[in-house]
């Protein structure tokens, strides 16, 4: 794929979906994220890049409060989703995570059938009134994840029997099935081969029409290929955040330039 394609693409809307202000994250005594401000725009792909351990995954996990599951993690600052503070004591993280879906680094389908994998979210959230409605959601989600054609004849077979790329698309279908507004992806292609990666990237671009997608990636080429906005993290700080084309062609911070040209990271 041509990396320069990124320059031609524009951000479609300017509606802010998520606004993070002054976010600090601590793991025990470690200050993992330092005073980060980020705006996630609706119907865009926002990429978080940076060297290992820079805090990009940690920040991503703040956006659906997955850090709550780690005892020692502490989050400060404000993260607003559609103008509501997701760290408000009144917010139940369970409800939040239905709105902000997540796809993980390693494909992690449940050891159940393909159908049950996709249907699990709608079932626990009561999204389908009957079997027919559930079937419809499953089909729609698998189609959106570009897996329907491969999976429609083996819906009752275990999801763990699929190939790596198919499993990751199954995980995307599973996340999409709960009808989220934001989709978080934590290095979704790092365990996949180049062909499966290309398929997922294509899929991410399609998903943009319905969701705002936030993707953490190690690969700068991937960020350039799929995202409209890019945030560069380094040592827990947000170094630079802006249009992907701008960051990759004309970075304003020397650290960003060093990373993009391969001198650090």
């Amino acid at each position: 794929m041509n990396d320069m394609r990124a320059v031609e693409r524009d951000v479609d809307t300017n509606d802010l979906k998520i606004t993070a202000r002054g976010v600090d994250v601590f793991y025990g005594d470690t200050h993992a994220i330092k005073d980060v401000d980020v705006d996630i725009v609706d119907n865009t792909v926002t990429a978080f890049i940076g060297p290992s351990g820079c805090g990009k995954s940690t920040f991503l996990r703040c956006l659906n409060r997955m850090n709550d599951t780690i005892d020692v993690a502490r989050v400060e600052g404000s993260i607003m989703l559609d103008g509501e503070d997701i760290y408000d004591p009144k917010v139940d993280p369970v409800q939040l995570r239905a709105k902000v879906g997540m796809v993980f680094q390693k494909p992690n389908p449940f050891p159940k059938s393909i159908y049950d994998n996709v249907a699990y979210g709608p079932r626990i959230h009561g999204l389908a009134k009957d079997k027919a409605a559930l079937d419809e959601i499953v089909e729609k989600s698998l189609r959106r994840a570009a897996l329907w054609d491969e999976a429609k004849d083996r819906l009752d077979q275990p999801g763990t029997g699929l190939s790596g790329g198919q499993q990751q698309r199954l995980c995307i279908a599973r996340a999409v099935a709960t009808n989220p507004e934001v989709l978080l992806m934590d290095e979704p292609c790092s365990a996949l081969d180049p062909i499966a990666t290309a398929q997922i990237e294509e899929l991410i671009d399609e998903l943009r029409s319905r969701y705002s997608v936030v993707i953490v990636t190690h690969s700068m080429q991937q960020a350039a290929r799929v995202s409209q906005k890019t945030a560069f993290f380094h040592l827990g700080e947000l170094v630079e955040f802006g249009e992907t084309g701008h960051i990759f062609t004309n970075p304003s911070d020397p650290r960003t330039e060093s990373y993009i040209t391969g001198r650090i990271g």
Partner: peptide, 27 residues
């Protein structure tokens, strides 16, 4: 039981108890 199963369930908006009883316990 691999932690990825718990993350997957929690990431879908399952409560802790749902993740334990639907996924961890059967495994």
């Amino acid at each position: 039981v691999p932690p990825s199963i718990r993350s997957a369930a929690l990431g879908l908006g399952a409560s802790k108890m749902q993740s334990v009883f639907h996924h961890v316990l059967p495994l």
